[in-house]
């Protein structure tokens, strides 16, 4: 395994915040692995994702190091690293067509002209299993459903063939049926393109389905990191145990015993 990214004692504080959002986090990301970062609201998981992608807003205080041995300088967002946000309604530009937004990364970073970039965009829309890609190139985000918009955002994120994909709560705003489809899509894309995946989520089941390793965050600190079978099967930290105990799936016993009121 090659080290893709070495994070050392990373600490991040937003201006006027009482507590740091990330508190001396150290971890190593291997090339080609799938890392799930899990935690509750305010655990620092999204801040970690943004720091990794170089997307922190101005004014934050950062200490520690993020070292990318195979990149000099750090990977360029859009070219080397794709980022998919939670809310595609906010991350897609409402006044640009789907085609323009997906083609832009391909044109800018793959040295294509607009015509070639649009051909690539149509291919990508087909890859993310959207119907009628040619027609969709001319559509606007508001004409699509939430799940379709998230597919567009994924297509745009991978347009320049990045080797790293960061997905920040990409299914949280979607219903479970759509969520399952998006997770399956990410799984296929990451495998076919041999990308490194950092998957931010609050759902243990999704983390266990998609990832090789799970990093558990709480209160800005890394509480535990390990392979799925270790973190899910033999959790060590309170944070991991809490997340697992709170997990509800179809195996969870009914809370209304006996089935009748």
């Amino acid at each position: 395994m090659t080290v893709l990214c070495d994070i050392r004692q990373l600490a991040i504080r937003y201006p006027h915040a009482k507590a740091p959002s990330l508190d001396h986090v150290s971890l190593t990301l291997q090339a080609g692995e799938r890392l799930a970062v899990i935690g509750e609201s305010g655990s620092g998981k999204s801040t970690f994702a943004r720091a990794l992608a170089g997307l922190l807003p101005p004014g934050v205080t950062v200490s520690g190091e993020i070292v990318w041995p195979s990149f000099a300088p750090a990977p360029l967002p859009g070219r080397d690293l794709g980022f998919v946000f939670q809310d595609p309604g906010a991350s897609l530009n409402p006044v640009l067509t789907i085609g323009e937004q997906v083609a832009e990364g391909a044109k800018r970073h793959l040295g294509l002209n607009w015509k070639q970039a649009f051909v690539r965009a149509a291919d990508l829309l087909e890859r993310v299993r959207l119907p009628e890609p040619e027609r969709l190139l001319r559509a606007f985000p508001h004409q699509l459903s939430g799940g379709q918009r998230q597919r567009v955002a994924i297509a745009a994120a991978v347009a320049a063939r990045p080797s790293i994909l960061v997905a920040d709560e990409v299914t949280s705003a979607l219903d479970q049926a759509v969520q399952a489809e998006i997770v399956a899509l990410l799984d296929d894309l990451v495998r076919e393109e041999a990308m490194t995946l950092v998957f931010i989520t609050h759902d243990m089941a999704l983390a266990s389905t998609l990832a090789d390793r799970i990093a558990v965050f709480a209160a800005g600190r890394l509480q535990e990191i390990g392979p799925v079978r270790q973190v899910v099967g033999h959790p060590q930290s309170v944070a991991a145990k809490t997340l697992l105990e709170a997990h509800i799936d179809l195996e969870t016993p009914s809370l209304v015993v006996g089935g009748r009121p």
Partner: peptide
């Protein structure tokens, strides 16, 4: 709907 419920994978 049943198929879409995420399952916890313990052994991988």
């Amino acid at each position: 709907l049943i198929a879409a419920v995420p399952r916890l994978i313990r052994e991988k």
